[in-house]
């Protein structure tokens, strides 16, 4: 599957217009996965309201097959971290993430979920949920418009569609060498223990000089 396809995308589209559908197992598998991404009904803060707005009639996330908000993490495929993750909440978020069955995806919605956002200097605010769980799509904005969430969802669908079922870039659930359980931090005396998952969170170093 990794070698170049024998038939180009244009030719395939042309065939499709003429009523001939060519597909591969990989394609139809990814198509199915990407159009039934069921999110977890999980709101944290302000962005959750925009998430609800995205599910309501005006924006209607159902058009993307993602309207089935599951209250149970066992039935959900997508964790939309919609809002500020505080240090007190972080263990619960990781636990919920661990409870979700693979294949699962994570969207960090809004500035707070990505980096702590406007509240990042706070003592109880986690500077980004990617310190503990892997994030697929980051949607900045405070809060992002419902359309921005839909745009993020479309990007996630594109990402799912472009995944290969074999090889080194196969999704997590099809590989044996990746552990899908992430360690849950514990409450310490001053901070979470550990404050981040060092295997997951590796920010590049960006040296900023003293201000003149």
């Amino acid at each position: 599957m990794s070698e170049a396809p024998a038939i180009s995308q244009e030719e395939r589209d042309e065939l499709r217009r003429n009523g001939i559908l060519l597909t591969s197992l990989e394609e139809i598998y990814n198509w199915g996965r990407s159009n039934s991404v069921w999110p977890l009904q999980f709101g944290l803060a302000c962005c959750a309201i925009e998430m609800i707005a995205a599910t309501c009639s005006r924006f209607d996330i159902a058009r993307f097959g993602a309207e089935v908000f599951r209250p149970s993490p066992r039935q959900a495929d997508l964790l939309i971290v919609s809002g500020t993750v505080t240090k007190k909440m972080a263990p619960q978020v990781v636990r919920i993430w661990n409870q979700m069955g693979e294949p699962k995806y994570c969207i960090a919605m809004g500035a707070c979920a990505i980096s702590g956002g406007p509240f990042k200097q706070g003592y109880n605010v986690l500077k980004g949920i990617d310190r503990f769980i892997p994030v697929d799509i980051y949607i900045p904005g405070c809060p992002p418009r419902p359309e921005a969430l839909l745009n993020g969802l479309i990007q996630l669908q594109e990402k799912i569609k472009s995944q290969h079922l074999k090889g080194p870039d196969a999704p997590r659930h099809l590989r044996d060498d990746v552990d899908c359980i992430y360690p849950v931090p514990e409450f310490g005396e001053h901070d979470l223990v550990p404050p981040k998952n060092p295997n997951l969170y590796e920010p590049p170093t960006l040296v900023r000089p003293d201000k003149p």
């Binding site: 960090a108 980004g128 799509i137 949607i139 900045p140 921005a148 745009n151």
Partner: peptide, 13 residues
Amino acid sequence: VFEVAATNRFEGL
């Protein structure tokens, strides 16, 4: 412009 979703938050944002 609000469609700025990225897959990498360090360089991407």
